Amino acid sequence: MKKAENIIVGISIGDLNGIGGEIVLKTFEDNRILDFCTPIIFASSKTIGFLKTHFKSTISLNNIKNIEQLAHGKVNVLNCWNEHVEIQFGKEDVKIGEFAIKSLQAATKALKNNAIDVLVTAPINKHNIQSDVFNFPGHTDYLAKELEGESLMFMVNDTLRVGLLTDHVPVKDIVEHISEELIIKKIETVYKSLEKDFKIRKPKIAVLGINPHTGDNGVIGSEDDDVLRPTLEKIKNEGKLVYGPYAADSFFGSNNYKNFDAIIAAYHDQGLIPFKTLSFGQGVNYTAGLNKVRTSPDHGTAYEIAGKGLADENSFKEAMFTAIKIFNNRFDYEQLTSNPLKKAPKKM
């Protein structure tokens, strides 16, 4: 059994011209967080040293060449490159995108090899990371390929959890992607995550409609009647507490979301606009359904304030604590399911 402070949190540094470095450093200004984990930042000592000087950070860093050299009770920096990095805050730069991918790839490899326990990713720029060797819309799609399981973008905080049927899909293509198979798969992923990662027995899930007013009996589209409703009925008949489809325009404003353990939206903005409106700065992007735990803050690179010392680190901090909590919940779940008569020990 791992002690809480020995849970190793890997951190990919994200876009160095954005606010990622700042929010990572600000998070560890409060060294009490080291009572809950041992962090490793995947970057380089020179790069993090520059950021530390720029932001006048007072944290103590332990620079290492391999994970075996990590020190518990300290913020570790694992060197992933030796090159000089020309940081120009607020500027989109393909070279900076290459360093973001180097960090992500090294951290993901460590996660796959169980050298770290969880991964927390700082924001990337989805445009400047594209190359012949990296051709993914973002973190979620890359990790879905590298790790085992069925990935799902799950936006979470203490009182609200929103999953997506489709994530980084152009609006014009959404309907083509939604099928009975996809709906069943995504709802199953959410259901298992609620049980395993959030310790919710018999989860209650709401599903939002695809079209405005869930199609108005076919007047505004037939997909809700032809695909979504029949599939939800099939899932209900299996004994799962799944309800909907609900008209998305009034669902959150009426506070109906408070009656459910999770909400599944049909597409990206349908779910993320209300989620970020209700919890911006406190929300966490969790990649559910994989065999490893990965979280990130609920915001992007924020070039407009990068380098100015104005970034709020709370979402990144929440992402760290959420990753640790899910890691512990999975430990308890595995203990209980492997031996239901044995009470799992506490680790935090």
Results as ranks from 00 to 15, higher is better:
Cys80Lys: 07
Cys80Thr: 13
Thr121Arg: 02
His72Ala: 15
Lys112Gln: 15
Thr108Arg: 01
Leu78Asn: 03
Lys102Glu: 09
Asp117Tyr: 05
Thr108Cys: 07
Gly73Gln: 11
Asp93Ala: 08
Ala107Trp: 01
Asp117Val: 05
Asp117Lys: 03
Ala106Gly: 08
Gln105Asp: 13
Thr108Phe: 00
Asn82His: 13
Ile124Ser: 01
Lys112Thr: 08
Ile124Asp: 02
Ile116Asn: 01
Ala115Met: 14
Leu111Thr: 02
Asn79Ile: 10
Gly97His: 03
Lys74Asp: 12
Ile87Asp: 04
Glu86Leu: 12
Glu98Thr: 13
Val77Trp: 02
Val77Pro: 00
Glu86Gly: 10
Lys109Asn: 12
Lys95Tyr: 11
Gly90Met: 09
Gly90Leu: 08
Glu98Lys: 14
Gly73Thr: 11
Thr121Ser: 15
His84Val: 12
Glu92Phe: 10
Ala110Ser: 15
Glu98Gln: 15
Ala115Pro: 00
Lys112Ala: 08
Gln105Asn: 13
Gly73Asp: 12
Asn76Trp: 07
Asn114Ser: 14
Ile116Gln: 04
Thr108Ala: 08
Leu104Lys: 00
Trp81Leu: 09
Asn114Thr: 09
Ala110Cys: 12
Leu119Ile: 07
Asn76Tyr: 09
Phe89Gly: 06
Pro123Asp: 05
Lys112Phe: 01
Asn79Gly: 10
Asn82Gly: 11
Val120Met: 04
Ile96His: 03
Ser103Cys: 09
Ile87Gln: 05
